[in-house]
Nucleic acid binder design. Structure first.
Lengths: 225, 225
DNA sequence: TCGCGGTTGTGAGCCGGACCACGGCTAGGA
DNA sequence: TCCTAGCCGTGGTCCGGCTCACAACCGCGA
């Protein structure tokens, strides 16, 4: 396993080298191609995954087939922890949006790890707490903001995590289709497209396939609030 | 502190008597009257609270003053844990919906407790995981369901936690005004009122002030999905 | 007893955004 | 090289739900 990437994960950042190496040793590696599904909502399974390369989407679908994305996860981020501590089927489907690889850890291995190392438990708790805070923020956005506002916020979040600053703006290769972006903000593809077109016509950003270049972070942030 | 109520809290249910008594000993007690605020969104503070009596609402408000309720908490339920593990200001305002009392535990006391007792850490993790799962469900409902559907779901949840079954139906003294119910499901007071009136006219429930009697759980559940 | 603030019931009008229907564009496979 | 499948851009229509407006009601304190 690639220790450097593991160390990016908030969960492991506080571990000393020996501990990180030992934990890395008990992890298995998985690889996926764009579009491949790692597991489906409703599946059983108790593995925890950490993205080492690429991006995945966590999604759920309604009874009539519509989709909603809970999150996009990139290198260093962790998912699947719900099934570890709140037993039950997987609550979301995980699909690769780019070719991607992961380290995985089983329930048993992790629990063995937890008992001796209170700082790992502390790390997991703060990880979950921060996820919960974010999820509550998403709820507030759905209630308070309109679609353009939510699109702006999503772009800023993606820029924060995946953006590279250049002299013509922040390049964000989010790797999402507008359809996926729409599912992420809980809106229709058409409405999201119109919001993006509007932002572009104001000169706040430039659209590229599966990618945007943000030219005016300031105004975009204001629109997000 | 009242040990019996503490034992209802999932967090403490697995503790033996000695441990529960010891933890109870380090807790302080707080009481509030209906309408009183325990703390505001944005306040600093690192206390964890457990409701021993009554109900509270956790809410956040938008910049333009509108409100949104994240949850209603009753006896045995815990809140304020976010500030424990994800340092930062309180993310919601907590207000008493009925006269209420709480036990509280400080950050330091809890951490002292955590180190020696892996099963408490396990309990906290599963508590947070379950909260996260619920929060994700709320997001899905906001995206997929219409207002009557969300109202039905909220009533069923309240019935599950606070309802008493009698021969004329399940009596749910939720203690919420229709305004508060509306904030809980992310809709306007008027729309919620119309949804309730519609359910009542179909004979699924009977409306009473700050309370409902559910007469047809079956159909209400179907409407919720 | 009489207001009076907070709550509940209900109608009218308007608007954001979903849904539908295209047409153009691009990339990848035969 | 063309053909096809997925994307992307953009109009038109319609409807759920928000806002506004007002009336009835209930309990409570002066």
């Amino acid at each position: 396993m690639d220790n450097d990437v593991l160390r990016q994960a908030p969960l492991f950042s506080s571990l000393d080298d020996e501990a990180a190496t030992a934990l890395g040793g008990s992890m298995a590696e998985t690889k996926l191609r764009r579009g491949d599904v790692l597991f489906h909502e409703g599946d059983s399974g108790d593995k925890l995954y950490i993205v080492t390369e690429g991006k995945v989407k966590l999604g759920r679908s309604s009874s009539d087939g519509r989709e909603n994305l809970l999150a996009i996860m990139g290198p260093g981020q962790m998912f699947g922890e719900l099934s570890l501590f709140d037993p039950g089927p997987r609550s979301a489907t995980v699909t690769a949006v780019t070719d991607a690889s992961f380290g995985s850890l089983s329930h048993d291995d992790l629990l063995r790890w937890l008992d001796g190392r209170p700082q790992v438990a502390r790390g997991l708790l703060s990880q979950l707490a921060s996820r919960l805070r974010k999820s509550n923020d998403v709820v507030a956005d759905l209630v308070f903001s309109d679609v353009p506002g939510r699109v702006a916020k999503a772009l800023l979040d993606l820029a924060d995590r995946f953006g590279r600053t250049a002299d013509d703006g922040v390049h964000v290769h989010h790797d999402l289709t507008q359809e996926e972006l729409a599912q992420l903000v809980g809106a229709s593809r058409e409405t999201v497209n119109k919001a993006l077109a509007d932002f572009a016509s104001r000169g706040w950003l430039r659209l590229e396939p599966r990618s945007v270049v943000i030219m005016d972070l300031e105004r975009l942030s204001r629109r997000a609030r």
